[in-house]
Write a protein that binds this DNA or RNA. Structure first.
Lengths: 152, 152
DNA sequence: TTAAAAGTCTATCAAGATGATAGAATTTGT
DNA sequence: ACAAATTCTATCATCTTGATAGACTTTTAA
């Protein structure tokens, strides 16, 4: 039930790229520095996201990565699945890497795991990076308001 | 986001023990055979569950394991936490192994992970082994009814 | 045209988690 | 005393994870 470092980094990089969506290609070095992610590791991550069509890249001087489509069309679920694979706690309830278990029909553990899978998917597949950006803004505004309160 | 083999085995063993709650101590060998779990592996699992007070054991001849309390007082969450540790996808939203992350106040990933943690906990901490036993019975009845339908 | 800057690709590595096994020690009922 | 059972500790192979290295390719500004 663990989010891998890889996915964690990926989400941060994606939020960064979403916030810079209109500004064209962003360089790995910049993301790596701002989000404190090991550069070489980030390379692998962004490469994976490009291969599944979430990112576009431009090679060469002034190259870099950018979202392949608008942030409100990319969900956290898409990114996490690209890096960590299936979201489901067991394969017999997974959409993306389904494998039948022997006693599927009467297995009651399967039932519970299906509930959990659906609960997780419900959050991850509805949340877009546009939502995430909005949350960042809200959260910043809130902490500024609070800072102000203390100042007065 | 994976349920370990350990927890999977543990859940099956616990369902077995719950179904045999009134019958006194059940031997590892029996559970191992009926649920097809490597016996030595199962030993470790049941030992862990005993140490956290979910099971009682009786040593020696006619010894074995039994639930330390009624099946409706033991939840799946308790068992999974004993074996796999925290349910939360990241430590900064975990009840049982909470560790602050650096930018906690404004971290938006944290917010989403908290939603997921709560969704998972909501299923696992409400579901008891009494519920699981009931589901087994329901599922068996259902498949019998269906078998009957075909016979007619 | 060419050199620098950028992504691409493949390989490798250390550390930790996972799934499993072995065997000696201890306890208990008869 | 003995047999049957749990207890405890150690070990092991394999896989996954997080990370790094380096050679290669593409682009473009000067």
């Amino acid at each position: 039930m663990k989010l891998s470092k890889k996915s964690d980094y990926a989400l941060r990089a994606m939020i960064y790229l979403s916030a810079n969506y209109q500004k064209g290609a962003v360089q790995i070095k910049e993301i790596s520095a701002k989000e404190k992610i090991p550069q070489k590791f980030l390379e692998n991550i962004l490469l994976t996201l490009r291969k599944v069509g979430i990112l576009n890249s431009k090679m060469g001087l002034r190259g870099g990565y950018e979202l392949a489509r608008s942030p409100d069309l990319i969900t956290l679920g898409q990114v996490i699945r690209a890096l960590d694979g299936a979201i489901a706690p067991v394969d017999c309830v997974s959409q993306m890497s389904y494998k039948p278990c022997s006693e599927e029909v009467t297995c009651v553990i399967r039932g519970v795991m299906m509930e959990i899978r659906n609960a997780i998917a419900d959050v991850l597949d509805k949340m877009t990076f546009a939502d995430m950006c909005k949350r960042v803004v809200d959260s910043l505004e809130k902490s500024e308001r609070e800072a102000l309160t203390y100042t007065i």
